[in-house]
Amino acid sequence: MDRARFHALLRDMLLAREFEERAAREYTEGRIAGFLHLYPGEEAVAVGVLHAADEADYVVSTYREHVHALVRGLSARSIMSELFGRRDGCSGGMGGSMHLFDRERRFMGGYAIVGETYPVAIGIAYAIALRQLPEAVICFFGDGAVNQGTFHESLNMAALWKLPVLFVCENNRYQIGTEIHRHSAVSDVYRRACAHDIPARKVDGMDVLAVHEATLEALRRIRAGTGPELLEMKTYRFRGHSMADPGSYRPRAELDAYRRLDPLRIAEHLAAQTYPDQAQLDAVGKDHIEAFSDRLQQQNLITHEELDRLRQSVQEEIEDAVAFAASSPEPVLQEAWDALNCNRNGEVMI
């Protein structure tokens, strides 16, 4: 891992956290309405996965997708404006928090009916396969979405026709307030993929480097035409399901335990490690030295000063995004009609 790449990952995680916490504040102050599903705690997944994607790849996401959009390269301005319901939003103020779209960046949308991302993803992948292009589709979904019929329907078709899809489960262990052991007979989502002969594995979703490496490997195979794969990212959301949910169904101890696994802290900690002395290496044991050494290559990736500068720059970027969104005009009703009829191409209707 080179320094520049690590800085990019860390900056996006910091930016994601700053964006979401600011969105929560704007919601509380009444400038953002509707449903608002926030991402803190899960940043390593979006950042690790999407930094492994090519520009030509497609991304299909859920209603908890601000960070996916942000990491995909949509500007904080355009996303915040969409949350504010303004004309400069990435969906022109017609979609809102749950429906961010950007055709140019192949961000194919946030979908707010659970289980919709699979069929959209296999449809895009079908088009890619039919045209024999070296592209892939990244399909996000949560642990709660694996009990929709479309999960097995779509995985079956993806495997049957070897479609280039990477299914990424963001397993944060809760479907709103129902813990995974109360909604799924098999709580390891990756094990379900074997029903369709789809290679799958679980990944520590709090470790951005682990997520990133697993995704790079999977996408390399998928683009080569070996068919779909599934990665289950074990993660956790620090907030409730949405701003309307205080999340009080979760034990305090559980939340505290996961907070110690905060992906941002882990990444910063990794970066700050120094080279171990002989005593430390001896303590790890000979068999583990190689694995440990891999990690050590990540040391000294960032200085305190650089980290401070990153923090400062993301704060400025979000501050600017909020100011931009607040000054963006409201769309007018005609723009809603235009959006509805955007594909009419001058056709005479009657």
């Binding site: 069929p119 895009i124 078709m157």
Partner: peptide
């Protein structure tokens, strides 16, 4: 449900 949705996804790409 899924093959009609597949049609939707494919249509998004043109």
């Amino acid at each position: 449900g899924s093959f009609t949705g597949l049609g939707v996804g494919a249509a998004l790409t043109g």
